[in-house]
Amino acid sequence: MTELAPSQSRHRKTAQRRTATTLRAYFPILLLVAICVVFSLMSGRFLTVTNLFLVLQQSAVLLVTALGMTFVIVAGSIDLSVGSTVALAALAAAMASNGLGVLAVVPAILAGILAGALNGVLVAWGKVPSFIVTLGAMVVYRGVVLLFTKGAPVSILDEGFLDVFGGDTLGIPNAAILSLGAALLCHIALTRSVFGREVKAIGGGERVAELTGIRVPQVKLAMFAVAGMLAGLAGALQAARTMAATSQLGEGLELDAIAAVVVGGTPLTGGVGGVGGTVLGALIITILSNGMNMIGVDPYLQNIAKGAILVIAVFLTIDREKIGVIK
């Protein structure tokens, strides 16, 4: 029996981990390309400029929501309330649009920030796990929407608002421009700002971050507020697309957003990952629906396919040395 010296086994482990890291980095783009190849072989309408813009427009709400989720998951937390926050923000936009027009996006974003900040306070200072806080918040925020709408939709009639958030510029959907712009800003924030570095450090080791002088509660508050702000913007986009706020808007969106982040290669354990992967993840999830509709897959089978792809993606990319619980 041969035993590896400690240093040898460490090197081997490191090499294995590097391979895993490389796979994690390229998996989302490979998956996206594979899906596109399959769909374009099966449908001539798939690989067209029209459909590309359609996909970008369809993915905008999911992408913007998933951007906020990226910060939260990189920090090792989770936010289940973003779907309800989207509905809350859409309602704020719809109610304000008749008076404020385009500026109705401001109350939508403020509603999102408020909802996110409330989560953040409870997680950071109340020391309640984010899973629980945001699970409760998901129900509460949805309840607030129901309370205001009594289940009836609130229509948006203001053309200005609908044009800016639902229209297009030079043929490109404004929702696509806004969501990709937001993605760029988030990418810079996560990789280049001190805030982004602190979020990563908290996800990498919360106790280490704390003992290194990072103000963990404040960073968590800011992070949840950012997630809420982006859900607020997503709410405005969603409201413009449906031309109304309803109490069902954004239902299940939190799970799609988590799926987009995870399929994009950001593990739930935190510390690593990025916005680029989330963009790919959101596109993968949108294109799966778009393509399956196009080639006429039974809608009931679509959910099974989407769920299976999520699990397979995580199965292939997860770093099993660091499996932890969702904080």
Binding site: R197, A201, G205
Partner: peptide, 29 residues
């Protein structure tokens, strides 16, 4: 490893983790 270092992070990230050099909110790599 539990309180001092984030071991999956790089040497540079760990050494600069306390100092976090920055200008107007941007981390100076």
């Amino acid at each position: 490893t539990g309180q001092g270092l984030i071991t999956q992070f790089s040497v540079s990230d760990n050494i600069a983790m306390a100092a976090r050099p920055s200008r107007s909110g941007f981390y100076l790599q």
